[in-house]
C-alpha cells in the first residue's frame, strides 16, 4: 500500500497551479458571473490542453482515462483557483456518455475530451451554466434528454454559477442502461465536486492565514489571538481529514466512500468559507474583495450533487 500521490501526480498539480495562477482566474470568474463567457471559454481550452477534460473519459473513447486520482488532483486545483463553469458537469456528462456508448458517445466524447465542447448535466431540476454550454443533458428515470437549450436562467446566490431548468429536446438514449450510467456519473460528480470543494477550502484558509498575519488590532497581529488561531486550526483539521477521504474515494470509487468524501469535503470547504468571512470581518463581506468568489462558491459546492444530509443518509443506511 502506498496511499500517497506519486511524483508525476504532484507535478501535474504544480503545473496546473502555475497555469491557473497566471490566468488571472478571479477576473475570469467575474466576467463569467456578468454573462461574458469569452474569457472562461478561453481558459477552458487551456485547461483542456492540460488533459483535464480527458481524465474521466476512457482511452478507447478519445480520453486519457479513466484516471480518477488524476481527476481529483486536477479538480482540487480548479477549486483552489475558483475556476468558473460546469467543470463537474462536463466530467460527469463524459462519464455518463462513455458508460452508455452508442451514438451520443460517438458524437460528444471527443469534443468534450479536447475541450472543444462544454457540456452540462442537470442535478435535480437545474442545470449549471447551461447557457454557456454546447450540450445540455438531462436524465429523468430511464431517459436521457439532450435539451433544446438552457431555459430561463434563475438568479442564484453565487452569480458565477447560473442555474436554469432545461426544456424539451431529443432523447438520444433510454432504458435501464441510462439509469445505471447516471448513477456512475453521479459518483464521478461527487468525487470531482468534493475535490473542488477541498481545493476551494485550502485556498480560503491560505488567504485567511495570510490576512491574520497582516491585520493588526489592539496593537498586534490578530493571528496571535487564540480565538483566531483555534478557529483556523479547526479549519485545517477539517480539510486535512477530508483530503484522505477524497483521495480514498478516487482509489476505491465505492459509493459509500464517494458519499463520505462529498459530505466531508463539502462541509470542510464551507467551514473554510465561514472562517474566512469571520476572520476577515467586514472587508470579507464585500463583493469587491476577490475572496467573495471563493466564499460564494463554497456553499454551492457543498450542496451540489448530494447535500451533506443526502450523503450521510446513504452512508448510514449502507
Amino acid at each position: 500500500m502506498r496511499f500517497l500521490l506519486d511524483d508525476e501526480q504532484r507535478q501535474f498539480a504544480t503545473s496546473l497551479d502555475e497555469m491557473l495562477s497566471a490566468a488571472g482566474t478571479p477576473g475570469v470568474a467575474r466576467s463569467w458571473a456578468a454573462g461574458d463567457f469569452g474569457p472562461g471559454r478561453a481558459l477552458w481550452a487551456r485547461i483542456a490542453d492540460s488533459g483535464v477534460f480527458a481524465l474521466a473519459i476512457p482511452e478507447a473513447q478519445g480520453g486519457l482515462g479513466p484516471l480518477p486520482v488524476e481527476l481529483t488532483v486536477a479538480y482540487e486545483a480548479l477549486g483552489r483557483h475558483a475556476v468558473p463553469g460546469p467543470l463537474v458537469e462536463t466530467a460527469a456528462a463524459g462519464a455518463l456518455l462513455a458508460r452508455l456508448g452508442g451514438e451520443p458517445a460517438a458524437a460528444w466524447l471527443h469534443p468534450l475530451a479536447e475541450g472543444k465542447a462544454v457540456a452540462t448535466l442537470a442535478d435535480g431540476p437545474y442545470a449549471l451554466d447551461a447557457d454557456a454550454a454546447d450540450a445540455v443533458f438531462v436524465v429523468e428515470g430511464e431517459t436521457l434528454r439532450l435539451a433544446d437549450g438552457a431555459g430561463p436562467v434563475q438568479p442564484t446566490l453565487d452569480p458565477a454559477r447560473q442555474l436554469s431548468r432545461p426544456r424539451g429536446g431529443a432523447v438520444p438514449a433510454d432504458g435501464p442502461a441510462v439509469t445505471a450510467a447516471y448513477a456512475h456519473a453521479v459518483g464521478l460528480a461527487r468525487l470531482s465536486a468534493a475535490a473542488q470543494a477541498l481545493g476551494l477550502g485550502r485556498a480560503l484558509l491560505t488567504q485567511t492565514v495570510a490576512y491574520a498575519k497582516e491585520r493588526r488590532q489592539f496593537g498586534t497581529e490578530i493571528g496571535s489571538f487564540q480565538v483566531i488561531k483555534h478557529r483556523l486550526a479547526d479549519t485545517l483539521i477539517a480539510l486535512e481529514f477530508a483530503q484522505p477521504l477524497v483521495y480514498g474515494a478516487a482509489v476505491t470509487m465505492a459509493d459509500r466512500d464517494l458519499a463520505a468524501a462529498k459530505a466531508a469535503a463539502g462541509e470542510a470547504g464551507y467551514l473554510a468559507a465561514r472562517t474566512a468571512l469571520q476572520v476577515h470581518g467586514a472587508i470579507g463581506y464585500t463583493e469587491e474583495l476577490d475572496l467573495s468568489l471563493w466564499i460564494r462558491k463554497a456553499r454551492a459546492l457543498r450542496d451540489a450533487w448530494g447535500t451533506p444530509a443526502h450523503c450521510r443518509a446513504a452512508i448510514a443506511a449502507a
Binding site: 496511499f3 486535512e240 481529514f241 484522505p244 463520505a260 466531508a264 452512508i315 448510514a316
Partner: peptide, 23 residues
C-alpha cells in the same frame, strides 16, 4: 442518522489519514 453517519465518516477519515501518514 446524521450523527451515525458522521461517526462512520470520521472513522474512515482517520483510517485513510493514517494510511497516508504511514506511507
Amino acid at each position: 442518522r446524521d450523527r451515525v453517519a458522521d461517526a462512520l465518516i470520521g472513522a474512515r477519515a482517520y483510517e485513510l489519514f493514517t494510511h497516508a501518514a504511514a506511507a
